[in-house]
């Protein structure tokens, strides 16, 4: 089976941060797999996903995405960017634009720059956008402005935009953190299902171990920038997750317990 993501001895610190956000991280994800990243706030999930998306530079180690190595000092060439789709934690939609416009924005990297600038999507682009909308169950919202939608609807638009991009790797940063439990299940089912039917790989982060178990084949636990465990879903036990989310000990001299 081919490899979608290969990370070897990856370390990274944000500019101005004292501690590294990622420390000696190594793992691989096979093509077509659905993998969940679990870990408390500040574990480094967003950092890792953004780095795989080619948006962070200045790291050390070896990273290759969809068979091509990433350059630690340079963003990937724009021709390769559409192959990796990203679902953002806070949706990252253009609020004043229509749902369809936002979904078409996902196709901008697939169009010629001139066509993209002139704003004339081809029939093919429109068809793909409409299919993505239908797959996400929001075909009837196409003409609505995003700022009139609920959180769950916005998340569907964000996923539809990602699908319209036709990515081979889908990176999703806490795609269900803003949703109620029922909605969260629907969205994760949608995301992992769409990835499967399209033959794409999915790597998503979450704070909810039970949801990760339901929708991922493999679970990677992170804490303080390190990988704590990396196991098939069937082998994940409650002790490991409890350990992952355990409280930090009392902070000396403050007397408060910081909960991560």
């Amino acid at each position: 089976m081919s490899t979608a993501v290969e990370v070897d001895d990856l370390s990274f610190a944000h500019t101005g941060a004292d501690l590294p956000a990622l420390e000696r991280v190594s793992f691989r994800v096979s093509a077509g797999e659905s993998v969940a990243l679990l870990g408390p706030s500040g574990a480094g999930k967003t950092t890792l996903l953004a780095l795989l998306d080619g948006r962070l530079q200045g790291w050390s180690g070896r990273v290759s995405v969809l068979g091509a190595p990433l350059d630690p000092d340079r963003p990937p060439p724009s021709a390769r960017r559409p192959d990796t789709g990203f679902v953002f934690q806070e949706f990252a939609l253009v609020e004043r634009s229509s749902v369809l416009r936002n979904v078409l924005n996902g196709r901008l990297g697939r169009m010629s720059p001139l066509r993209a600038l002139l704003g004339s999507p081809t029939k093919h682009d429109l068809e793909i956008a409409r299919t993505a909308l239908a797959d996400c169950g929001i075909a009837d919202l196409a003409e609505r402005r995003v700022d009139s939608l609920s959180g769950g609807q916005r998340q569907r638009v964000a996923i539809a935009r990602c699908l319209a991009q036709e990515p081979r790797l889908i990176l999703a940063d806490e795609p269900v953190s803003n949703l109620d439990p029922a909605r969260a299940c629907e969205i994760l089912a949608l995301l992992t299902g769409a990835a499967r039917t399209r033959g794409a790989t999915a790597l998503f982060s979450s704070h909810q171990p039970d949801l990760a178990r339901r929708f991922a084949q493999r679970i990677i636990g992170m804490r303080d920038g390190r990988i704590v465990f990396d196991v098939p879903t069937s082998e994940l036990n409650d002790d490991a997750t409890a350990e992952l989310y355990r409280e930090v000990g009392p902070i000396p001299g403050i007397g408060l317990r910081a909960v991560s």
Binding site: D53, R81, E90, A92, G109
Partner: peptide, 15 residues
């Protein structure tokens, strides 16, 4: 955030 999203999708600066 939407700017980063478009960058991630492969859109150039003018787009």
């Amino acid at each position: 955030a939407p700017i980063a999203a478009l960058e991630s999708a492969g859109a150039g600066p003018l787009v």
